[in-house]
C-alpha cells in the first residue's frame, strides 16, 4: 500500500483530478469568496464612475482561454450595463476571438436589452496590436469603418460621444496574451485613460509590477478574479443573485484541485526523501 502512494500511476492521478473537478460542478456546490484587493479596485472604479461613462473594453482572448476568461467578461459587462455605461469593445489579440465577443454581447442584449451602436459597439479585430490601439487614440471610426457585424460605424449614435481615446473614462483588457502591456504602452500612456487588466491565472503574477506602479488600477486574475467580481456584483446588486455565476461555482472545483495538487506534491517529496535515504544507505531505491 505504501509503495502505491509513492508510485502513483498517472491514470490514477488523472482520475482523482477529474473527480475533484466534476463532483462539485455536478452537485452545484458553492463557497464564500473573499475578493482580492486588486479585483475590488477594478469593481470600485466602474462603480464610482458616473452613469453613462465611456468604457473601452479589450476582449483580447481566443477560444483556448474561453473557460477562464468568459466568466470575467460576463461579470464585467453586466456591471457596466447595470451602471448604464457606454461600452466600446475591440479585439486586438486574434481574429479567432471575435466570435466570443459576439457571443458575450449577444448575451448582454438578452439580459439588459442593450442595443448595438447605441449602448455598446463591438468593433471586432484588425491586424496589428500597436496599430489598432494607436488608431483608437486618434480617430476610432476612421480606422474601424464598420463594427464586427459589418454595420458602418460613422453613423452610430455611440460615436457622437466617443471620438477617440481621450473620451475614454476607463479601459479594461481581458487578455490571454500580453496585450495589456501594449494597451499601457500605446493606449493609456498616449490617451491618458486609467486602465486595468484581466488575465489567465498563469499570467496573473506578471502584471503586479504594473499594478504597483499605478499603470494598472487593478487586476482580475483567472477564475478567482472572475469569482471575486461576481461576489462583488452580488453584494452590491442583490438582483444579480438570480443570474448564473459560473466562476463562483468553479471555485469549489479549483479549491479541491489545489488541495489535491498540494497532497500530490507532499507525497512526491516524501517519496523523493525516502528514495534518497535508501540510496545513501546503499540499498536499492
Amino acid at each position: 500500500m505504501t509503495n502505491f502512494f509513492f508510485n502513483l500511476p498517472r491514470q490514477f492521478i488523472y482520475l482523482i483530478i477529474a473527480l475533484a473537478v466534476f463532483i462539485p460542478i455536478i452537485l452545484g456546490m458553492e463557497m464564500d469568496v473573499i475578493p482580492a484587493p486588486e479585483a475590488e479596485a477594478v469593481f470600485n472604479i466602474i462603480e464610482d464612475l458616473p452613469d453613462g461613462s465611456v468604457i473601452l473594453f479589450g476582449q483580447d482572448y481566443d477560444p483556448s482561454s474561453e473557460p477562464e476568461l468568459t466568466p470575467m467578461t460576463t461579470a464585467f459587462l453586466r456591471h457596466c450595463f447595470l451602471k448604464k455605461h457606454l461600452v466600446v469593445s475591440v479585439n486586438v489579440f486574434t481574429v479567432d476571438g471575435v466570435g466570443l465577443g459576439q457571443m458575450a454581447f449577444s448575451k448582454m442584449e438578452d439580459e439588459f436589452g442593450v442595443v448595438s451602436g447605441e449602448d455598446y459597439v463591438y468593433l471586432g479585430f484588425r491586424p496589428g496590436v500597436a496599430n489598432s490601439i494607436r488608431a483608437i487614440n486618434s480617430d476610432i471610426t476612421n480606422y474601424y469603418k464598420t463594427d464586427a457585424n459589418g454595420v458602418p460605424s460613422a453613423s452610430m449614435p455611440i460615436f457622437e460621444k466617443v471620438k477617440n481615446g481621450k473620451d475614454v473614462d476607463f479601459m479594461l483588457s481581458i487578455a490571454a496574451g500580453a496585450t495589456p502591456e501594449a494597451w499601457i504602452l500605446y493606449g493609456a500612456s498616449e490617451s491618458g485613460y486609467p486602465m486595468a487588466a484581466g488575465c489567465t491565472a498563469v499570467s496573473f503574477a506578471s502584471y503586479f509590477p504594473f499594478y504597483n506602479s499605478g499603470q494598472m488600477k487593478g487586476i482580475l486574475g483567472g477564475l478567482k478574479g472572475a469569482a471575486d467580481y461576481e461576489e462583488l456584483l452580488v453584494r452590491n446588486y442583490p438582483e444579480m443573485k438570480e443570474k448564473s455565476m459560473f466562476a463562483k461555482k468553479g471555485m469549489v472545483s479549483q479549491s479541491w484541485v489545489h488541495i489535491l495538487l498540494l497532497v500530490l506534491i507532499i507525497l512526491g517529496n516524501i517519496s523523493f526523501i525516502r528514495e534518497r535515504a535508501i540510496t545513501r544507505r546503499g540499498g536499492k531505491a
Binding site: 502513483l8 498517472r10 492521478i13 488523472y14 483530478i17 477529474a18 473537478v21 484541485v257 489535491l260 495538487l261 500530490l264 506534491i265 507525497l267 512526491g268 517529496n269 523523493f272
Partner: peptide, 13 residues
C-alpha cells in the same frame, strides 16, 4: 490541468 498534476507529483521536489 491533468498534466500539471502529474508533473507536480513527479517533478516538484
Amino acid at each position: 490541468c491533468f498534466y500539471i498534476a502529474t508533473a507536480a507529483y513527479r517533478a516538484f521536489r
